[in-house]
Nucleic acid binder design. Sequence first.
RNA 1: GCGGCUGUAGUUCAGUUGGUUAGAGCACUGGAUUGUGAUUCCAGUUGUCGCCGGUUCGAGUCCGGUCAGCCGCCCCA
Length: 415
Amino acid sequence: MAQSVKGMRDLFGTELRWFQHIEETARRVFGRHGYGEIRTPILEELDVFKRSVGESSDIVNKEMYEFTDKGGRQVVMRPENTAGVVRAAIQHKLLNSSDPVLFYYIGQQFRYERMQTGRYRQFWQIGAESFGVATPESEAESLLMLHSFLTELGLKNLTFSINSVGTPESRPAFHAAFRAFFAAREAQFCEDCHRRIETNPLRVLDCKNEKCQAALEGHPVITDHLDEASAKHHARLKVLLTELGIPFEENPRLVRGLDYYTRTAFEVLSSDLGAQSALLGGGRYDLLVKHLGGPDVPAFGWAIGLDRLAMVLQQVRGEAPHSTPALLIPLGDRATLEALKLARNLWDAGVALQLETRGGALKKAMASANRLGIRTVLILGDGELEGGTVTVKHMATGEQESWPLGEVASRLASR
RNA sequence: GCGGCUGUAGUUCAGUUGGUUAGAGCACUGGAUUGUGAUUCCAGUUGUCGCCGGUUCGAGUCCGGUCAGCCGCCCCA
């Protein structure tokens, strides 16, 4: 039997309904914050990710679907969407004014990695990026939007975990202090951390190994080594979040995996998830636009994994909200033609209706309606045709009534 | 990329120390006055035991490989 490629997935049924519900909620919430959608290509030049995500990162080194196309171009299937959005914004000169530019995206990403539950090689991300504003206020705006988004999806007890990773200018001072700290208790750290301290020192901070977390007790804190502007920025954000009543906690061990982050980094935790695993992450990336060849424009953004979000929502909320159409069952030859005409009128009037066209016994059609979760069944037979009515059965209660044909559309609409 | 576990009807699973025609619940199909579902009763269908090879008189059961899924790690969010 033909099978989907490993890590690729087909979406349909109840799972897809959650995806759709999430996407609708995203569009509604982001739209009212003034964000516009952007759709960028799945294929980008390799260089876009090398220069943004970071040449040393595992994403770029090991996890990209990468190939040479027939024209000899080195292309990759995007492993994330921020780089593509930035590339597009630069290419179309969208960042050449002083106005803020607000984008959101919903799209598939690809990473060649080991699969686990809720984790695929083709996965979906929703993200929002705000360009052109460097203030803590713009971050508060973005986080408020995110908070509304998650709240409207029904997630509870959200906590924002925040930190500041400083700037390239302030980071060396911290790195030096941290390396000294590490060296003093080197033996207590795991093998991976010994590697990390060389390649990406900040990563030692979020090692999952309990011994490492214990050894980190009393470690130098990044926020103590910030430059003055970054420190002020960080303090201001905390004031704003407090004033806005957004629950947050400072987490000095919170870092980002991608190279392009500066200053604010954050994650969102929900009591609906396991205690330690984050639902999403994001932060400020003031250097990326310029780094990719654009103007010197600050930016802030975040991304959330749709596959995982849909899975969590299905667990905590069950079925995604959806409505089922009514079902029209004709009985007899004459009624079958009349039913087709009636259905056409109802469809044209905007009514959601499914038509039984198999022509079998009513009993079977009813059983079928039950399996499909249909709540309202319309029966049209010779008796109904005589009287110009349709028999309506409400599946939940079993009650039946008779509606005049002319009122079917309006009565179904107000169901 | 590294380590471990699993793979039997549509689905959830059972299948004794290898032994004859591989089972159950649910689902599905048909029926219990042909215009009434979900409840009840009766009857019935369902499988290359993931795939390929090996050991054996004999393999769902043991061994190897492979594919797929799951759990850690790495990585990410």
